[in-house]
Amino acid sequence: MSLSISLTINGEQRDVELDDPRVTLLDLLRERLDLTGTKKGCDRGQCGACTVLVDGRRVNSCLALAASQDGAEILTIEGLAQGETLHPVQAAFIAHDGFQCGFCTPGQIMSAVGLIGEGQAGDDPERIREAMSGNLCRCAAYGGIVEAVLEAQRTIAAGNGADTRRDAA
């Protein structure tokens, strides 16, 4: 059985034929669309490495069936920067050493972009830690991650960010 789905991925419409309904959004991105920035960690929704935005909301792409996302707008780490200009969250992760090995980083950054869009944490580091608890970092760069989220949020609020559509995402 073949399933035809249509997705908007990083602003570009992609029509995809799925030969197997078992394909997750994560495997579709990595194995079939060569978007390997999104990482597979646990593949069971426990680590957050696979976090992407679906219709502006951060989710675990390993637990999302690709077929069920038909029509959705997907934003991955590859879609954040504007050419050579990094997204404010990306820039802040570098400025604050929000990573060491880097494996969890695309998921951390996408989760942070989602968090800022949700607008629930404010500038309270404890609320940011709580809202980022779905992203594990084995290198324990958590201190830098929280600082990066705080700074990126300030940058975006000040209007110095990338284009507004992506900030809103």
């Binding site: 929704g45 957050g48 976090t51 909301r57 951060r58 989710v59 675990n60 637990l63 999302a64 989760s111 989602g114 968090l115 949700e118 809202a131 980022m132 608890s133 779905g134 992203n135």
Partner: peptide
């Protein structure tokens, strides 16, 4: 319950 990502889905 769960994480922000899971609560979104």
């Amino acid at each position: 319950g769960a994480s922000a990502q899971l609560r979104n889905a």
